[in-house]
Design a binder for these strands. Sequence first.
DNA 1: ATCCTTGCTGACTCTCTGGTCAGTAACTAT
DNA 2: ATAGTTACTGACCAGAGAGTCAGCAAGGAT
Lengths: 205, 205
Amino acid sequence: MNEPRYQRRKEDRPQEIAEAAFEAFAENGYSGTRVEDVARRAGVSKGLTYLYFKTKEELFKAVIRNVVTRRVDALIRIVEETDLPSEDFVRGPMLDFMKTIPDSRVRIVIRLLLEEGPRHPDLVDYYYENVVCRGLAAIRRFVERGIERGEFRPTAINDLPQLFLAPVMLSVVWKILFAKHPLDTDRLIETHVEMLLDHFRARPE
Amino acid sequence: MNEPRYQRRKEDRPQEIAEAAFEAFAENGYSGTRVEDVARRAGVSKGLTYLYFKTKEELFKAVIRNVVTRRVDALIRIVEETDLPSEDFVRGPMLDFMKTIPDSRVRIVIRLLLEEGPRHPDLVDYYYENVVCRGLAAIRRFVERGIERGEFRPTAINDLPQLFLAPVMLSVVWKILFAKHPLDTDRLIETHVEMLLDHFRARPE
DNA sequence: ATCCTTGCTGACTCTCTGGTCAGTAACTAT
DNA sequence: ATAGTTACTGACCAGAGAGTCAGCAAGGAT
């Protein structure tokens, strides 16, 4: 009646460990998480972690890359494929997308990047090129298309796609720091979007 | 010809050590800074640091409090004392104030709070009450005054003073992470302010 | 049943750093 | 001068946690 003490599951381990690491990092930050915590959470020994990830830093980078890759693609796809009028698109799919970010894994990733980024320039570069740049480029193309179609007037926002994301960023930071003082981030983002649209409609004086 | 190896300067030491600590934390973050680094930078021995600050954590908190207290007072004062029309005030003193933040010590404080905040709830509370709340309250009063005077129309921004600060926050985060990819934060903030004013003027449809 | 490969364990080492404290020397008072 | 006070030093300690590795046992091959 002696059950096996462990199973060999070479294929699944890396993913499981990375998942456990994400959770642990999310709760305690990078430097506040011990590799042994990650291992215990994944139900393995500390040694095994080091079989699949050379160092704690490697593990960290793998976790970030793992999480990040998907979500931007989603944004880019909905931007490229839509045939809605620009205003409707902003009020619809784009707004929905923006509202999901502050409660998604992206928030955790940003928190972790802010904590550890300065010590891992290559990781920040990776994030910049694969997420930030591509996301901003998609927004910029969307605005340009709106202008070509005559749905938007040309404004300074053309060069500043970051303006779309400003309230999202604020919401993320707020939720990291002031979780116990609730902020209606949905309403914040909605209002910001209305402002953007006002601005695209407004006559220069 | 033997010069004294050190001077006794009881009065100045705490401030000097706190200043050195701020610089060291700014460069390497909290956990990346050794107490000995701080001491060397301040030109004292490690032991002395512990004479004036009980623990590294105490030192950290003292540094944050030290930096933070002044700047909000400045904002509140200019808001309360101005007699400019609301639009002029926003385009003038308030805009100037907002533009200074991403390159000020506030940026460093936010970076440090994001790194260590989750492990020091009391420090976050202090920051929230003494900086965030008071700053937001000042903005809210300003908007209400504008509405009373008939210079602004009532909008959702009334309850969301955070919207004023969204691009400032984004600028801060951008400068923490992507220092090597310059962003024209002045222009970002100016454009955002123009959007805000458009919105206060716009007719509901 | 038995061997063999290798996924996996857990106790170990080693470094790093926060924190201590006995002793030293700078200033003061006489 | 000299003695007394205490700001200051620097060598030390202790704990924590990253990373290692010899050996064990799970599961497949024969």
